[in-house]
Write a protein that binds this DNA or RNA. Structure first.
Lengths: 227, 227
DNA sequence: AAGAAACAGTGTCCGACGGACACTATCGTT
DNA sequence: AACGATAGTGTCCGTCGGACACTGTTTCTT
């Protein structure tokens, strides 16, 4: 299949010069650039130059830029945590928090995992981690898969917003506030909602709020099944 | 602010040749290309050529490619629907379905709205629509904003998965299944879950399942507040 | 010891992209 | 009729990913 490069380290050949680079070094260089300047700043040129080599030498290690980015994602996401599955609700909450941490540490990942892509052991490991929590709920297999999907989707969605809010000059909420100041008459309910939110002072609870709603909803379904 | 071009049609000048193009024509050409071949196929060249003009003529209308894509998104998302807010739960469900429809009709939008971007009247209109449904729930302003965020995030996340599943040769679930066939021993819980899901036959319920969980969770919170 | 074979890294070239800039063509106004 | 504002074109540039042929290096085989 297409994503072998994420699973098998290449067999070290016996003949010829020793490789001066490694997939790990290359991925780390790319990650460093993406963390500092965004995914768009990651070019074959930059990555190679950061390691003191020419662009073309990278093609000895990766088949193209897509592979490089896939390697970066797999390494940035990291190995999934070990979570005690005794209390499924607490475990899922912990899982979601740690996944969000991984995304926020490397905000460009949400951009990189868009579209068709290769799937690596770490990414599958995170799914495995969630899958190992859910059996005690008594939900069906389809429901458990969907539950993982909803939670992972929520984490991704929040990570996207968090990424946008990173650059102060292009803050989405500031942009919305500005447009509402200009054309507020066309969006009365939205203006009222934001005014109310400003009054009650609660901010940046989007992740926790959504997570709690989803877990409440799951809990309800589990109890319905259980009794 | 930076996104005036999404709000004000440019004033038609009296002197000089008549414009041969319009923002609407340009955006439609871009949308047609993106629908057919994906966002990556949208280049200034292609869009201009489809209208029978040279690339540089587009710069009379848009400041750059970013503006073009923003125009495409604003037009593709379309004007938000009018929804009867009597039953807030049914209304939100309808809202989410229609928003998903809009995304699925133009799968490239989920890619285009990543990162800092200008915000247009249609996008704000969708938020207004949701905001006008929620007051009857009795939730606080912050909670209502977060509720909108969770729902919109869920729709976006599902739309992303739907986009990936579009191309048969790079189906993510098929890729996962393939890797599990090879390395299933490392992911026992995941293998078991997918086997169970295949047995109970329920498929493609991710959107409905997640939406129902979120709405259940909101309902619970509303009732807690109400009594 | 001397090729031969496999491998690592480089230099050069290409087409496509977004975009700057100077240019010509077209129109309403005076 | 002339002018000036506007529309559209042609040319050029830097950067990108990548193909391909090349040189240099190491080790196995004879």
């Amino acid at each position: 299949m297409s994503s072998d490069f994420l699973w098998e380290g290449r067999a070290q050949p016996t003949r010829g010069p020793k490789p001066a680079l490694s997939l790990e070094h290359i991925a780390d260089a790319g990650i460093a650039i993406a963390d500092a300047e965004g995914l768009a700043a990651v070019t074959m040129q930059r990555v190679a130059a950061d390691r003191g080599f020419t662009k073309m030498s990278l093609y000895r290690y990766v088949a193209g830029k897509g592979e490089l980015v896939a390697l970066m994602v797999e390494r940035a996401i990291g190995v999934p945590p070990a979570i005690d599955p005794a209390d499924w609700r607490a475990a899922l909450k912990q899982w979601a928090h740690q996944l969000l941490d991984a995304y926020v540490r490397h905000p460009w990942t949400v951009e990189a995992i868009l579209g068709p892509r290769a799937v690596g052991p770490n990414e599958l490991g995170w799914m495995e981690c969630a899958a190992s929590i859910l059996p005690s709920t008594g939900l069906t297999g389809s429901e458990r898969l969907d539950a993982i999907g909803v939670l992972a989707g929520h984490v991704r969605a929040i990570a996207q917003q968090a990424m946008v809010g990173r650059q102060p000059e292009a803050d989405l909420t500031a942009e919305i506030a500005e447009q509402l100041r200009r054309h507020g008459d066309r969006f009365p309910a939205l203006v009222a909602t934001m005014a109310a939110a400003a009054a009650d002072g609660g901010h940046d609870q989007a992740f926790e709020f959504g997570l709690d709603r989803i877990l409440d909803g799951l809990d309800l379904l589990v109890n319905r099944r259980g009794g």
